[in-house]
Simulated assay, not measured.
Amino acid sequence: MNARKALGALTTAFALAAASVSVPALAADKKVTISQAFQSMLYLPLYVAIDGGFFAREGLDVTKQTAGSPSAALSAVLSGSAEFSLHGPEWTAVAAEKGADVDVIANVVNGAAVWIAVAPGVKFNSVKDVKDQVVVSGQMPTTSTSLFFKLLKENGMSQSDVKLIQVPLGSEIGPLVAAQAKIAVMYEPGLDQAVAKGMKVVLGFPQHYGEYAFSSITAKRSVDPDAAARFVKGLQGALSYMQSNPAETAAIARKEFPTLDPVVVDAAVKRMLTEGVYPKSVDITPQALKVAMDTQIALGNLKAQPKYDAFIVHTFIQPALAAK
């Protein structure tokens, strides 16, 4: 299924003890549910907010559900089975463009969290070195491959200029290690799994594109404003904590991903903190939204930029920032 069809399908959906935070907690007197697209290292701010007690401090009892896809996560909000969802804001923008009463209320990932890794000995002085090469990337629709296509276009190339192997997300390392491809477009923690096997990171999209609204919290416009305000404030607490407590943040990540090599988890967390993938605040700037939505417009998934002041709900963001 291509990206346009997958995003368009949203129309049918309308109908760590080791790293606990010593903070005084309010009684968890309000229960809410968040539906996340996947259990993902990218979504670590949410896990820190839950496991570190930041939501509890705001009087929230948060249940996390994993939907399996961005569209399913958003559908949970649309149907009322969850108050919040976590995925790329483009899904929310497409739904809103089609008439759904949803907006974005907080930032979670503020960098284009995609990297290019190559096998030892591979020449890579610029993106143009991928021409005529075998490249492994995630199956569309996914932002990693979309951004790779965007990068090719920006450098005077097209999809036909590379021999692309699309694989299920998270399995990009397989063809790379098996030498079926010598170049891979990857997310974390796959990237640092590849690095641990001798691969080299040659290009980071977070640095290349700067601020990029990559993943965010969505809610209906009719969401309980008190619950939303508490949620965003708790998330802001987690984001601030992550910036000044990297070791404790990594400990929470190891708890959430117990089957991964702790060395890989620690390296992935460090990389995403250092490169600004994990934001310092829940706010989303106009530029971050524009860059992200321009990608979707170029792919034909979105007709026009959403109106920033209406789409990004500062009603909940501003009080959270004031309380930092």
Results as ranks from 00 to 15, higher is better:
283 D>C: 01
167 V>P: 01
187 Y>H: 09
261 D>I: 12
61 D>L: 12
117 A>G: 11
237 G>I: 06
198 G>M: 14
16 L>I: 08
48 V>A: 03
165 I>L: 15
146 S>K: 06
164 L>V: 07
7 L>D: 00
264 V>T: 15
128 K>T: 12
249 T>E: 05
3 A>T: 11
316 F>N: 05
248 E>K: 14
284 I>F: 02
47 Y>K: 00
257 F>M: 12
252 I>Q: 00
177 V>A: 15
11 T>C: 06
149 F>S: 12
271 R>D: 12
235 L>F: 13
132 D>H: 13
43 Y>L: 12
83 E>V: 12
49 A>I: 10
322 A>I: 06
6 A>Q: 08
190 G>W: 01
261 D>N: 15
241 Y>W: 10
79 S>F: 03
11 T>H: 09
324 K>F: 09
163 K>E: 09
46 L>V: 07
131 K>L: 11
133 Q>M: 12
14 F>N: 02
58 E>Y: 11
61 D>T: 07
259 T>W: 03
229 A>R: 14
166 Q>D: 06
52 G>S: 04
310 A>L: 08
84 F>S: 05
290 K>D: 15
171 S>C: 03
249 T>R: 03
108 V>G: 00
6 A>C: 11
157 M>N: 08
133 Q>N: 07
216 S>T: 15
174 G>W: 02
4 R>G: 03
66 T>S: 06
318 Q>L: 06
16 L>C: 09
112 A>R: 03
291 V>W: 02
255 K>C: 05
183 I>A: 13
242 M>A: 08
90 E>A: 15
155 N>V: 11
151 L>S: 02
103 D>E: 10
81 S>A: 11
24 P>Q: 14
40 S>G: 09
148 F>P: 01
193 Q>V: 09
115 W>F: 12
16 L>M: 13
149 F>Y: 14
34 I>G: 02
204 G>V: 06
67 A>I: 06
300 G>I: 01
319 P>G: 09
144 S>I: 04
92 T>S: 12
258 P>I: 06
56 A>K: 11
127 V>P: 08
103 D>F: 04
148 F>A: 03
182 K>M: 07
277 V>K: 00
233 K>N: 13
321 L>W: 00
140 M>G: 03
324 K>N: 13
159 Q>F: 09
141 P>Y: 01
143 T>I: 13
76 A>C: 08
17 A>V: 14
213 A>E: 00
188 E>D: 10
135 V>D: 02
181 A>R: 04
134 V>L: 04
247 A>H: 06
257 F>G: 09
85 S>Y: 08
19 A>M: 04
44 L>C: 03
120 P>C: 12
97 E>I: 07
37 A>P: 10
265 V>M: 05
321 L>E: 05
185 V>W: 02
41 M>E: 05
305 Q>G: 05
287 Q>T: 14
223 V>G: 12
155 N>S: 14
225 P>H: 08
322 A>Y: 05
110 N>Y: 07
